[in-house]
Design a protein around this nucleic acid. Structure first.
Lengths: 219, 219
DNA sequence: CGTGTATTCAAGCGATTACTTGAATACTAT
DNA sequence: ATAGTATTCAAGTAATCGCTTGAATACACG
């Protein structure tokens, strides 16, 4: 095999991965899978895609090496193929934030709050949580919490938060997190908590970013 | 603007970047631009694409925020938009290496040598070069060397190496590098040097990886 | 000012992609 | 076995993409 030929084939392979992340639907699937493994059906419901369409997208992602499948009974559970995939998604977002004006505009449009919510970074939270100084609040759905969460976090899905406020102590600061930097549930949580007189901030990033920082995840 | 709508638009934006890296031709262009800024014409020549086709690919990359352009006289020089783009390409390759069997096969097919060439990593080279213990050899074309190279490196393009061997001292080890982990010129250089009785190894990665490691680049 | 060169634009064509629909397959549980 | 559910497969259509060709634009130089 001649060498320029090998080069070309390598570019073709890498381009396959590019193709896999060139669809909004597939990116949404990947974001969900970055939280927890899930069945085709559950992914279809969460994304609003038809089941057949989801299945096709998932197969495309699998062919590109981004996700892996596990069959259990009549269900097929898909999961990210590895931490490299999370890194790839991070890099994708980081390019978007740095160089696409449209991304900047969109982020500002819903996280004006960002400035006022004073996000805590992972290292700071890790230190303070270890000393028991803060309550770590995971507002994601129970399934995602079950598949892995920050050490010592309590799970109150955002839809239940309003009616479970009494579970929190007024004195202790609450740090809320959810799926990632563009996940709105933690922002909503912080706003609700503050309105009710709690001291609350949000984590800058979600579980995937916590993992990427090399920090420990509890199951 | 409703929030699920914003989410959707964000995925669309990130997908634009995915689309940009979904073509082998564009990946090749990006790899070249990771070395140095270049004109459309020079990129077309290097890749073997027609000028019009290159121009279109470059515009696509620009729209996706991956590259930026600078017009000087009748030339348009394109360059990577930022270090995030290099990170993205790194992440892409890393997913490929980890999860695409085909990539593994291709890499093995031309870098069996890899095992026997005992690549040096960036940190080790930085330390040894600072003490003057090794000769750092850049085998890339002169233009790319001129746009930035490892501190203290000497530039002998691979095509000139055979006739310029007398410039090297037999006793001092030579560490060769070129464009990146899949760049063959440094492998060829090491093989030639060894055959002629020099002590030689290659750097694991090229200039972009050196930059990503946060190490200093000389111009 | 005209000539040559670098780049971009515009139109066209074949190949690929995204999504839908309806059916087939695979497994579970009664 | 039978019915029910999860997933995949297959076929069809509209839209998009990659590349080519030929022309237009932009700039430099004599």
């Amino acid at each position: 095999m001649s060498t320029p030929d090998v080069k070309k084939q390598l570019f073709e392979q890498f381009a396959r991965i590019g193709t896999a992340i060139s669809s909004p639907a597939r990116l949404e699937l990947l974001e969900l899978l970055a939280q927890a493994e899930r069945s085709v059906d559950s992914l279809a419901t969460l994304t609003g895609l038809t089941v057949a369409n989801s299945s096709q997208h998932l197969q495309a992602l699998k062919r590109a090496g981004l996700i892996a499948a596990r069959k259990q009974g009549q269900f097929v559970f898909y999961r990210l193929a590895g931490i490299e995939v999370t890194q790839l998604l991070e890099a994708l977002q980081s390019v978007g934030e740095a160089h696409l004006a449209e991304v900047d505009r969109l982020v500002r449009s819903f996280v004006d709050a960002r400035d006022t919510l004073e996000p805590v970074d992972a290292a700071e939270l890790a230190a303070r949580a270890r000393k028991g100084m803060v309550t770590v609040l995971d507002v994601r759905p129970a399934e995602e919490f079950a598949a892995g969460h920050l050490p010592g976090a309590v799970n109150v899905p955002i839809v239940e938060l309003r009616e479970r406020l009494k579970e929190f102590a007024k004195g202790k600061e609450v740090i809320a997190y959810c799926r990632g930097p563009y996940c709105l549930m933690s922002i909503e949580a912080v706003e609700l908590l503050r309105a009710k007189g709690f001291k609350a901030r949000r984590l800058d990033g979600g579980l995937p970013q916590w993992r990427l920082a090399g920090l420990q995840v509890e199951i």
